[in-house]
Design a protein around this nucleic acid. Structure first.
Lengths: 346, 346
DNA sequence: AGCGTGTTGGAAAGCGCTTTCCACATCACT
DNA sequence: AGTGATGTGGAAAGCGCTTTCCAACACGCT
């Protein structure tokens, strides 16, 4: 069934040249080949429908054309935006993107890098926050070391924790600036939907927000921070706890947009109006946000751009040590936040 | 810099066995190896940190562990939902997903399948509608033939035009059912944002919608169909034309949700309220829809499921000819559609 | 003529693995 | 003891390509 594939050897034979010459013609070898032979080879290759065997090339060259991309969940707009950036750059460079999804399982992350290593992938971009879990971080670090030792390049989008090139969004300062602007709106009591306690992005954003409130002479009691999953459903679910906590908050900061969307849905179902009863702000500015009503205030991150930057880091030929690209966050106040009017969450 | 990798030969030597034995132990060979040797090999492999070279395996076995996934734009929720389904199934099966994006360029589609063929990918899932463009369809068909001739499997998500296994959503009947329900709501004058004229999904949906209106004794004048790109911005841009056309329509059907989201934003900017001034319905039920206000009426397609089905088609070992999996669409009426109240678009 | 230099083609040695053979033991059964 | 069947290990031949090395030749010089 599987028809025999045309090989370089056949092309060479048909063209009456050696294997070496055929190889030199059909790939960007440095060696020159006379115009006459070159044409003959190219001609027969086209005629026979020759297609190089990528596995054989990868083996012979000890390097492939593969670039790994590791995300938690490709259906999440945050990751799919980053993925769009990464694929654009990689494909423009003639490379092939391998997509791996972890489902937020750190072990799976290690597994994926391992697989990529087995494939002699040229590089890998790991998107998705690190956690405080020492064990899996350790395993991942080892796997990454092995990968780089083998000549592969690695970049992360998140915290600069792994000793590799990293694109770091301004989680702290972005959240801090947001807090200040919300305080300037007149809010005095805040609540935070803070995501999982062990997730570094979430921690950074909460810490930054707290710092921003402190700048305004405000405090964020620990009791006003509700923990939940970093997903839409996490945000949705957290609202029950939030309401039960009777914090009296007039403004809620949610550590990412996807969670914020879930939270807004839940608030609606609780009969609370945004922003009349409570203001809501998120973080990331995922593309889908612009069609939300009320439009969600947030801290804008250039997600697709961040993907491009990460891919760029990993594909250039700079040999310097771990580089860090800092990406600023821009506070965007929209309809979901207003000056406090009601009594807040009580 | 690139440290030498541990090879099977080294493992074999350290374990004091032949290359053949080592290979048999470390891969699912049918051949038996005595418990003693097996343990010795596994032990040294672990000790030395052996990782098989996937390229070499692919070459020797003449088959790889790669599965291609070709989409137009991974940042589009329609595609990222399908992608999530495909990756889930593929990764569960221990395969590796290669993501290719076309940017809606048919030539790029051909290019990607070609690359996948060069990599001896085991299968490829092509998501994204066919067009009426004969030339590029022809080229793609040839490429697919070459791919299958080589033992690869191909499945599409869209129209069953390519002679391969296909997951076909009920575009026609879904749109038809939607039209009937909208007519039952009392609407008499409709407009359609129809997407690109050469795109088959778009054509099918428009045709289905027209048929549904006909069922209700209503006509859809050609002048009430506005053409534009199949993207959010396409939907956004089309609204100007729509308004200028002064169709008097009280209800607008938009051929996909992403376009509908753009259209709703544009309608808002035109000072038109949904659904008071005009009802709007879309198609697909992308996940982000559930947080839209007003919630968009649509025809629900189980997108992630469709991705899983497509991956399933391509990974099972049925040898039967081209199969077609039909997926039903379920009309979901939400807040964006109501009985007509105003004068419509005039 | 003799020599170095540069250019171009080909033979062949890998790259790291799988898999076919073949050899040898062992075992059950005449 | 002799026969086949069965189980297990190893040698070696690929898989399709890249790249080193060498040979051949054409130059431009002295």
């Amino acid at each position: 069934m599987a028809s025999r594939q045309v090989t370089l050897a056949e092309v060479a034979k048909h063209a009456g040249v050696s294997l070496a010459t055929a190889s030199r013609v059909l790939n960007g070898s440095t060696r020159q080949v006379s115009e006459e032979l070159r044409e003959r080879v190219v001609g027969t290759a086209r005629e026979l429908g020759y297609l190089p065997n990528a596995s054989a090339q990868a083996l012979a060259r000890n390097s492939s054309v593969l670039v790994g991309l590791v995300v938690h969940d490709i259906a999440d707009p945050y990751f799919s935006s980053i993925a769009a950036g990464v694929t654009r750059i990689a494909e423009d460079a003639g490379l092939v993107v391998v997509l791996g999804t972890t489902g937020r399982d750190p072990r799976r992350e290690v597994e994926l890098v391992n697989t990529l290593r087995a494939h002699r992938a040229r590089a890998v971009v790991i998107a998705g926050s690190r956690t405080t879990d020492r064990y899996s971080s350790q395993r991942l670090a080892e796997e990454i070391t092995a990968f780089t030792a083998q000549g592969g390049r690695v970049a992360c989008v998140s915290q600069a924790k792994l000793g590799v090139d990293t694109v770091v969004p301004a989680n702290r300062s972005g959240a801090r600036a947001l807090a200040r602007q919300l305080a300037a709106l007149g809010h005095r009591k805040f609540a935070v939907l803070g995501g999982p306690p062990d997730l570094l992005v979430a921690r950074d954003r909460v810490a930054g927000f707290k710092a921003g409130l402190a700048d305004a002479g405000l405090d964020l009691p620990e009791a006003n921070i509700v923990r939940s999953g970093f997903t839409r459903d996490g945000g949705y679910a957290a609202v029950s706890d939030l309401v039960a906590a009777k914090t009296g908050a007039t403004c809620v900061f949610v550590v990412n947009d996807v969670m914020a969307m879930g939270a807004m849905a839940a608030l609606r179902e609780h009969g609370l109006r945004v922003p009349e009863d409570v203001s809501v702000a998120g973080f990331d500015d995922i593309p889908t946000l612009r069609d939300l009503v009320p439009a969600l205030s947030t801290v804008r991150l250039p997600l697709e751009d961040m993907g491009e930057r990460a891919a760029g880091l990993v594909l250039d030929d700079v040999v310097a040590g771990p580089r860090t690209v800092r990406v600023a966050g821009e506070v965007v106040l929209r309809a979901s936040t207003s000056s406090p009017s009601g009594t807040g969450l009580r």
